[in-house]
Design a protein around this nucleic acid. Structure first.
Lengths: 119, 119
DNA sequence: CAGAATCCAGAGGGATACTG
DNA sequence: CAGTATCCCTCTGGATTCTG
């Protein structure tokens, strides 16, 4: 009813935040990024994501699973095997993640440039 | 040289993370989103972002400023006036933020649907 | 108006050791 | 291999009060 200047309302605000709630975690973006190429196993992530600890990897994967982004398939074998993959819903994150990668590249380039300037 | 399966290397990984380092903060996405429409003043943010505290708003704005995303213009007046706007570099975040909004909408819709199912 | 300062709780996140 | 379990600490973030 009131139109004023508020073409941006509560709804708009929350939408952006929902997304950050889902992929804003320290390692979640990277995890999803790696899953874009296909399913991955637990230790594959550890190798591909230097710096992540077992604990954090587990926690972040569990949250992504809970949010319906990642699917976790357990094979009843010895030794155990678990495969992580993106759900259909998780796939819809692809544009965002790709954008984030592109932007991050540019950002890194920019930072490097600044340092090269001795500034 | 070695091509193996590693078309994804350290570099790819970091890029996604740089981006999250810059806009992964709890309120940063929303702040940038609002700035897409134009410059904003401190208390405008407070009105548009219910839930954010003065402290956090200040901190997140300062970080965005430090990272070259946001420009802070102070007018020497009484009462004081400060206007925040996106830098040129900050503008390049637009696609990501818009994507995040779209995805967040879909996510919210999905969550609402689940709850409606009583599940 | 646009914050700075202070205090405080809790979540996020790391290191290490252990397990089915 | 793919985790749990603990301990511990930092840093995020909220509430409140004060200021140029």
């Amino acid at each position: 009813m009131v139109e004023e200047e508020s073409d941006v309302n509560q709804h708009d605000k929350c939408s952006v935040e929902w997304t950050l709630d889902v992929i804003g975690g320290k390692w979640k973006g990277v995890i999803v990024f790696h899953l874009l190429e296909g399913k991955k196993r637990f230790n594959e992530f550890r190798r591909r994501i230097p710096g992540v600890t077992q604990r954090m990897l587990t926690l972040q994967l569990r949250e992504l699973e809970r949010d319906g982004v990642v699917h976790r398939k357990v094979y009843s074998e010895v030794p155990p095997r678990v495969e992580y993959s993106l759900t259909e819903f998780g796939q819809t994150l692809e544009p965002i993640i790709r954008n984030m990668k592109t932007w991050g590249d540019e950002y890194a380039r920019r930072v490097a440039e600044r340092q090269a300037e001795g500034q």
